[in-house]
Design a protein around this nucleic acid. Structure first.
Length: 342
DNA sequence: ATTCCACGGGAAAGCATGGACC
DNA sequence: GGTCCATGCTTTCCCGTGGAAT
C-alpha cells in the first residue's frame, strides 16, 4: 500500500509548495539580490509550528541553487545548535572549512574569521528556531558579514525581538518579515493529497478521511502528515489495501504522543525526570518540585542548575510557569503538543 | 505596616574535557 | 607523557523581589 514512505518523513521537501505561493514569492524576492552579487536583506519568517516556514525557506534556497553554482547555502537548526559557537561551526561545516578546526580548542573568534574569509561566493543561511539561540550576539556578527544573507525562522515576532539588545534590534527591525498563518482545513487536505499521490497506492485513502485528519490537525501540516504516516504504517502492517476510519481514529492520538515523545527525547535525563514529576503533580510549586526531584534522582543537581533546566524547558514550550516568585507553579505545556487547539 | 524568606536569575569560580604543543 | 588552554557544564555566592507571615 505504501509506494514511497519518504514523502511522510518530517524532513521531506516536496517538489512543489502547495498554498504558500505568496509567501514563497515574497521570500524569493528578498533573497533575489544575491544572484546579482548584491547583499540581500535579512528575512524573518514568523508563524506557529507546521505552517511551512522551514519548507518555504529550504525551497527558496533550492531555487537559488538551481539558478547558479556560485552560491553557498546552509540550514542550521538553533534548537540543536543553541549557542554562537555551534552555529558558526555548523556554518563552516557546510562550507567544508572545518577540516582542521577541532571542537572546543579553536576559539570562536577564529571560526568567525574563517567564515569572513570564506567570501568567494554569497552564503545564504537559514537559522531555524532562532529564538532558541542562547546568545543572539552571533546574529549581530553574521549581520556584519556582507556575503552572508540570513533567513531567520521563529514562532513569534515579539519573542524574538524582545530578547535582543538595541543595536541588533535596530538592524533586524528593518529586515523583511514574512508571516505565515495556519492552514485552513481545505488547504491541509490538498497538502495531504499531494503526499498521498506520491506516497500511497491508488485509492488507499478517501478525501473524507483526509478531511478528518485535517480537522484533527488544527492547521498544523506537521501533525496532519504525522497522523497520515501513523495510520498508513498501521494499515500496512495489517496488510490492508486502504486506510480505514479506525486506522485514522487510532492514529490521531498516537501521532500526538509520538510528537510528544520526540520532543521529550531531546531533553536530558534530569529534565525528563522534572517533566515527569510536573506531569504527575499537574501543578507543582518550585520547592515541592525540587524535593521530589532530589528524592528520585541518583545524583541530583543543585537548585540553581534545576532552575536553569526549568527555564530552558519553559523556553522550549515543554512546560509552563505561572506566577512570580513564591506563588509560582509549574505545569506541563499542552499547547506544545497540539492538544489545546480548538 | 513591617519583617521574613523562598524564589529567580546574574556573576563568578570550579571542574571536566579534549586538542595543541613541547 | 606532561602542560597549557579554551570551552561547556555545574556549583557557589549573591541580590532584588514580592507574596506570606507576623
Amino acid at each position: 500500500m505504501i509506494a514511497d514512505a519518504r514523502v511522510f518523513q518530517d524532513t521531506f521537501l516536496p517538489d512543489e509548495i502547495v498554498h504558500r505561493n505568496a509567501e514563497l514569492n515574497r521570500l524569493s524576492g528578498i533573497v533575489q539580490p544575491v544572484l546579482e552579487g548584491n547583499p540581500a536583506e535579512t528575512a524573518c519568517l514568523f508563524g506557529p509550528t507546521g505552517v511551512g516556514k522551514t519548507c518555504c525557506a529550504q525551497y527558496a534556497l533550492e531555487q537559488l541553487r538551481e539558478t547558479t553554482f556560485d552560491i553557498e547555502t546552509a540550514y542550521v537548526n538553533c534548537w540543536h545548535n543553541y549557542n554562537g559557537y555551534r552555529v558558526l561551526y555548523r556554518l563552516l561545516e557546510e562550507l567544508n572549512r572545518t577540516l582542521d578546526v577541532h571542537r572546543q580548542s579553536t576559539p570562536k573568534d577564529e571560526l568567525y574569521d574563517r567564515l569572513r574569509q570564506a567570501d568567494t561566493h554569497p552564503y545564504v543561511v537559514i537559522l531555524d528556531e532562532v529564538d532558541q539561540l542562547e546568545d543572539k550576539d552571533v546574529l549581530y556578527d553574521l549581520y556584519a558579514l556582507p556575503h552572508v544573507t540570513m533567513i531567520l525562522i521563529a514562532n513569534d515576532e515579539q519573542d524574538l525581538f524582545s530578547g535582543l539588545d538595541d543595536r541588533l534590534y535596530s538592524r533586524l527591525r528593518g529586515s523583511e518579515c514574512v508571516k505565515f498563518d495556519r492552514y485552513s482545513d481545505d488547504e491541509l487536505v490538498s497538502i495531504l493529497e499531494s503526499r498521498v499521490q506520491r506516497g500511497l497506492a491508488e485509492g488507499a485513502i478517501t478525501r473524507e478521511h483526509l478531511a478528518l485528519i485535517a480537522d484533527a490537525a488544527a492547521g498544523d501540516a506537521r501533525v496532519a502528515i504525522g497522523v497520515l504516516r501513523t495510520a498508513a504504517r498501521q494499515a500496512s502492517y495489517d496488510g490492508a489495501t486502504e486506510l480505514s476510519r479506525a486506522d485514522i481514529d487510532a492514529a490521531i492520538p498516537e501521532a500526538r504522543s509520538e510528537l510528544r515523545r520526540k520532543t521529550l527525547d531531546q531533553l536530558i535525563a534530569d529534565q525528563q525526570l522534572l517533566y515527569e514529576i510536573i506531569d504527575e503533580h499537574g501543578e507543582v510549586a518550585p520547592g515541592t518540585l525540587y524535593e521530589a526531584y532530589e528524592h528520585r534522582c541518583d545524583g541530583p543537581k543543585s537548585r540553581r542548575m534545576v532552575r536553569n533546566y526549568l527555564s530552558k524547558m519553559e523556553h522550549y514550550n515543554v512546560i509552563e510557569a505561572d506566577g512570580e516568585k513564591r506563588s509560582r507553579v509549574y505545569r506541563v505545556s499542552e499547547a506544545a503538543f497540539g492538544t489545546t487547539e480548538r
